[in-house]
Nucleic acid binder design. Structure first.
Length: 1036
RNA sequence: GGGCCUAUAGCUCAGCUGGUUAGAGCGCACGCCUGAUAAGCGUGAGGUCAGUAGUUCAAGUCUACUUAGGCCCA
């Protein structure tokens, strides 16, 4: 016996039960252990930080990340899924600073690095519990008991190994990096911090004259930061842009052609036009002498780069390599020197005339000085948005800092090659956003001047020698003051010195820690402490078969993974990646706490249940598109899909319990099944094929849609059509067939859907399958994914049934137009379709539409008229611009005559203003327009016509159907059980009473009545209006 | 400021290499059906396919620009 099924849709409670069941019985672990060790499917989990709360977007990533491995596990692969935590980095430090009331690096150092780092370590677990509960609730299966943690000594040791390997390949070097820098706090800011502090400011910019060497002319260059002019080393033009040499007043200038009139006014004459490329390497005289002698490399000439625009300014940009990302890059490209006449406090240095003056204060002084020297062309006011420190409101400066880089430019070709091996979903990201990014890859600045992170494993000697340590053992071997239980963090490592292999001197570690993106990109090997342990395991699980994160990770994790795997192994770190769109609110706006439109994920899960939310994300739209999330949308899918599935299951259980039916006692007798059952099994097996193919190819939405369509047809066609087969008292062959077919459909379907909606499918499985078969697997998630039985797939059958559905739909429409309700039988229906159905299907149509006769007819002329339209796709290229006239002529043709001509000659002649034109059959589209006496409907190539005149016999039958329906309604309203037998009485209408009498045998049988009498008034009563006849019915 | 993505019915989304009446689901109105169903079926109202210009016999679809939103980078 099955457990009785609640028809309530209270999914959340049932999900909690399943969650508990999984936990108590280690279902997740079993799903891994039961599979063959050498048959692996690898998934890498991108680590979240547990010092931030999960938000609704994490539901999307988790449900996608969860579903694919569940599917592969059922396909027979061992699918190891290790959870991970990202624990290092500036966000953690900032959180702790806030907590401790600290502000800036000075205060941190005063507070003490050791206690600070300790706090950081605690802080990262702030929301761990919440994350775990969240993961359990959405049904995210990953090994949470033994996760990888990026701050773990073993993890760091693996990262060190990687860094040392890179160091030994000579791909790790020191250089300058331009960072947004707060001169007051003495610290660079992350882009996230910079973004918080943009403000519109009005400043004076400068257009400066740079004297061309050996030529009586000047370059006009524009800058918004005059304080960088003393550090000028080069100019830059766009090689593609046209420049002019123009005479204006006493001066001759070079500047961009399109900006000349804006800058010089109307009064100038063009002496020469030339592309920027021809200005390359032209030398000029330095504005200031400060740098002369300080630099050995050749400087003070014009460079080319396409970052220069002609949006404003002069089209010539002044370059100070210490103060701008582009400046720095271009100067490196041209091998120009480097000077930085601004100190760490943001003041100009001794070398200049304004020593100790803060940069922003120096601006007017420098402008004045240039004006006096006749080098200032103009100093226009300029309004722009400029970043300020979010802490202290000081204007930020872009400032070169000593920094460590990984030479990604050296492995660019390899990166591109490896990226080509990745299956990006959608492919456009791999080619576009990501492909372009690595096409222009820059060296990776990996050092951070902070405290809480993986320490950079480079030791430096006074003699200049540098050494990279690759393991704890190596450190201990080279050091005489390394504690036994050394923790690989600041400040503990800062005091550990090693002996210089070159000079024997003391080597100290450099102060930097590394970018935490390097940590997360190292997880393929660091999660297993490779190469110190688990060598074989790593090799088996690299590269990953599948990863998935949101689109913002393109230059984050997606990049760091492939960057590191390319550097170390020259392989991509993953084979398939689904890139997910962001979750937005109802109006397509970004969700944020400040806007108050953020959806609390736990609340949403509580309200709708995990399956409903999962389903929404699978079904709603392609995963990479932005998802608008709101309650109503989730409810829709829940009702339509989960509700329908549940009800179909409840239907089966209801009747199987009445009949004490157990599928294990029977065999499915395929050969002798009725067509309806064969159709369902064919649909089912086609579905298996398509779901398997789609999920194997990571096509999520397509899978969801096909599952949804199947449930719809299962419930609203198969079950609805087959309902009566379950009603009879005896266990007939037909009833067994129906049970077996429905059981097979349901029990197979839940396996197909299990990866997507793991809770409801297991709930159903526990009752439906485990109560049918004592030897069934413990959980649906331990089952093998179904394989299609090709012998059951009958495409012809599915095609026929499809036509039945279309005809039925048209028939209903025709009834509607004729205003004849469904209970009123109709005598005749004619159908024209591309192919003819045999008697069985016609019977379904007849029954479904309550029509006595259904016949196929090719010649429908009696009931219809034709109209003609050009078949544009074919006729368009042939007819060209005549096509509009053809359309007009066709519309005015006599349909019947034209049809006849076309049928007879195979062609149709029409006359146009330009002469006669001959159309063949393929050139025109013929459609049906009119009706006469019959109600007709048409769609695609199917036409139906129903007879609208009714005979007295048909009308009487209509009454019988009405009466039965009313009695059934009364049974239901008055709480009779399905099997109860009743007595029926009728009163108040002779016509109805006589109809009842004439048809009492049929009616009694259907409504389970022992007797039908008139006059004797017993039981529940209700007055009805049946086709205009008032009558009172009684049931008892 | 630069690159990329998105914009189609009140809402959520389809719309293949351009083909003329732009579809589906939800919601709404009316009607039908229903002894599993919180469902189902039909009809109707509801669209300047974000805007402008262009290519073409033909543009939701291709091109350019603009607007709004998003992501990444400055």
């Amino acid at each position: 016996m099955y457990e009785k099924v609640e028809t309530s849709l209270n999914f959340t409670q049932r999900e909690k039960n399943i969650e508990k069941f999984w936990q108590e019985n280690n279902i997740f672990q079993k799903s891994i252990d039961q599979r063959e060790k050498n048959n692996m499917f690898t998934f890498y989990d991108g680590p979240p930080t547990a010092n931030g709360k999960p938000h609704i977007g994490h539901v999307l990533t988790r449900v996608i990340k969860d579903m694919i491995p569940r599917f592969q596990a059922m396909k027979g692969y061992q699918t190891v899924r290790k959870a991970g935590w990202d624990t290092h980095g500036l966000p953690v430090e900032l959180e702790v600073e806030k907590l401790l009331g600290l502000d800036g690096k000075e205060q941190i150092e005063k507070y003490g690095i050791e206690p600070f780092v300790k706090k950081c370590k605690e802080s990262v677990w702030k929301y761990k519990g919440m994350w775990e509960e969240f993961s359990r609730t959405v049904g995210y299966w990953a090994d949470m008991d033994d996760p990888y943690v990026t701050y773990d000594n073993k993890y760091i040791e693996s990262v060190w190994w990687a860094l040392k390997t890179i160091w030994e390949k000579d791909l790790l070097y020191q250089g300058h990096k331009i960072v947004p820098y707060c001169p007051r706090c003495g610290t660079p800011l992350s882009s996230h911090e910079v973004a918080q502090g943009y403000k519109d400011v009005k400043e004076r910019s400068a257009i400066v004259r740079f004297k061309v060497k050996g030529e009586n002319a000047y370059f006009l260059a524009w800058t918004t930061t005059p304080w960088t002019l003393p550090s000028n080393l080069a100019l830059c033009v766009n090689p593609e842009v046209m420049y002019v040499k123009a005479k204006s007043g006493d001066y001759t200038y070079y500047l961009a052609e399109t900006l000349a009139s804006k800058v010089l006014g109307e009064d100038f004459s063009v002496l020469e036009k030339l592309p920027g490329k021809e200005l390359e390497y032209k030398e000029y005289e330095p504005l200031y002498p400060f740098a002369i002698g300080k630099i050995k490399k050749k400087s003070f000439y014009v460079t080319c780069d396409d970052y220069v625009t002609t949006a404003d300014g002069t089209g010539i940009v002044h370059m100070a390599p210490a103060f701008g990302e582009d400046d720095s890059r271009v100067c490196r490209k041209y091998d120009i020197g480097f000077v930085q006449f601004v100190d760490a406090k943001g003041c100009l240095t001794e070398e200049t005339d304004w020593a100790g003056v803060f940069v922003k204060k120096a601006d007017p002084l420098i402008l004045k000085d240039l004006a006096e020297k006749g080098l200032l062309f103009d100093a226009p006011n300029f309004e722009h948005s400029y970043p300020h420190c979010w802490r202290c409101d000081t204007p930020l400066i872009y400032y070169a800092r000593e920094s460590w880089f990984i030479r990604m430019t050296a492995v660019r070709e390899k990166l591109i090659r490896n990226n080509d091996k990745v299956n990006w979903i959608p492919p456009t990201i791999g080619k576009g956003r990501f492909g372009d990014w690595i096409e222009h890859v820059q060296d990776w600045g990996i050092s951070r001047n902070r405290y809480w992170g993986t320490p950079l494993n480079i030791w430096e000697c006074e003699c200049g020698h540098q050494h990279s340590i690759g393991s704890i053992d190596e450190l201990k071997a080279m050091s005489d003051n390394c504690p036994d239980n050394i923790e690989l963090h600041r400040p503990f490592l800062d005091t550990v010195t090693i002996k210089c292999p070159k000079c024997g001197g003391k080597m100290h570690r450099v102060p930097e820690v590394i970018d935490c993106w390097f940590d997360s990109g190292a997880m393929p090997f660091a999660q297993w402490h490779y190469p110190f342990e688990n060598k074989e395991l790593f090799e088996k699980t690299f590269p990953a078969d599948f990863i998935s994160e949101a689109v913002d990770q393109t230059r984050g994790w997606f990049y760091s993974l492939i960057a590191i795997s390319t550097l170390l192994f020259d392989k991509p770190a993953y084979k398939n990646v689904i890139v997910l769109g962001h979750v937005q609110d109802k109006n397509g706006q970004k969700m944020s706490k400040s806007k108050g439109n953020a959806v609390e994920p736990m609340e949403a899960l509580q309200k709708h249940g995990a399956d409903a939310i999962r389903w929404y994300f699978y079904e709603n739209s392609a995963p990479w598109l932005p998802n608008r999330f709101h309650d109503d949308a989730v409810q829709e899918g829940q009702r339509k899909f989960l509700g329908t599935l549940w009800n179909t299951y409840a239907f089966y259980i209801l009747y199987a319990n009445i009949d004490k039916f157990n599928p294990s006692k029977y065999e499915l007798d395929y050969e002798n099944l009725p067509v309806m059952d064969k159709w369902l099994l064919s649909r089912l097996n086609s579905l298996i094929k398509s779901v398997d193919a789609n999920l194997s190819a990571y096509r999520v939405t397509e899978t969801a849609k096909s599952l949804q369509d199947f449930v719809d047809e299962l419930s609203n066609w198969y079950v609805r059509r087959s309902r009566e087969r379950f009603w009879g008292k005896d266990m007939t062959e037909d009833k067994i067939n129906a049970y077996m077919t429905l059981y097979m459909a349901l029990s197979t379907f839940i396996k197909l859907a299990a990866p997507m909606i793991p809770f409801i499918t297991d709930t159903i499985y526990q009752n439906l399958v485990r109560n049918s078969y004592t030897d069934a697997n413990e959980s649906v998630h331990l089952c093998d994914f179904p394989t299609a039985n090709e012998a059951y797939i009958d495409e012809e059958l599915e095609k026929n049934m499809q036509l039945v559905l279309e005809i039925v739909s048209l028939g209903r429409a025709a009834r509607n137009t004729a205003n004849i309700k469904n209970r009123q039988p109709i005598g005749q229906m004619f159908v024209k379709a591309p192919f003819v159905l045999d008697a069985f299907y016609k019977a379904i149509v007849a029954d479904e539409l309550n029509i006595k006769n259904v016949d196929f007819k090719d010649d429908m002329e009696k009931y219809l008229a034709y109209s003609f339209k050009p078949q544009f796709k074919i006729l368009g290229p042939k007819a060209g611009r005549q096509i509009n006239e053809i359309k007009k002529v066709l519309a005015s043709l006599n349909g019947h005559a034209a049809k006849e001509e076309l049928d007879k000659n195979g062609s149709l002649k029409i006359s146009l203003s330009g002469g006669a034109f001959t159309l063949v059959r393929e050139d025109v589209e013929i459609s049906v327009t009119q009706t006469e006496g019959f109600a007709t409907e048409t769609y695609n190539k199917v036409v139906v016509a129903i007879e609208t005149t009714l005979t007295p016999e048909l009308i009487e039958e209509g009454f019988v159907r009405e009466i039965i329906s009313k009695i059934q309604t009364m049974r239901k309203e008055n709480g009779f059980e399905v099997t109860d037998r009743i007595k029926v009485c009728v009163d108040g209408n002779e016509k109805i009473a006589s109809i009842l009498k004439r048809n009492c045998t049929d009616i009694q049988k259907i409504v389970l009545a022992d007797s039908i009498e008139s006059g004797k008034l017993e039981g529940f009563s209700k007055e009805w209006n049946i086709n205009g006849e008032k009558v009172i019915l009684y049931v008892k």
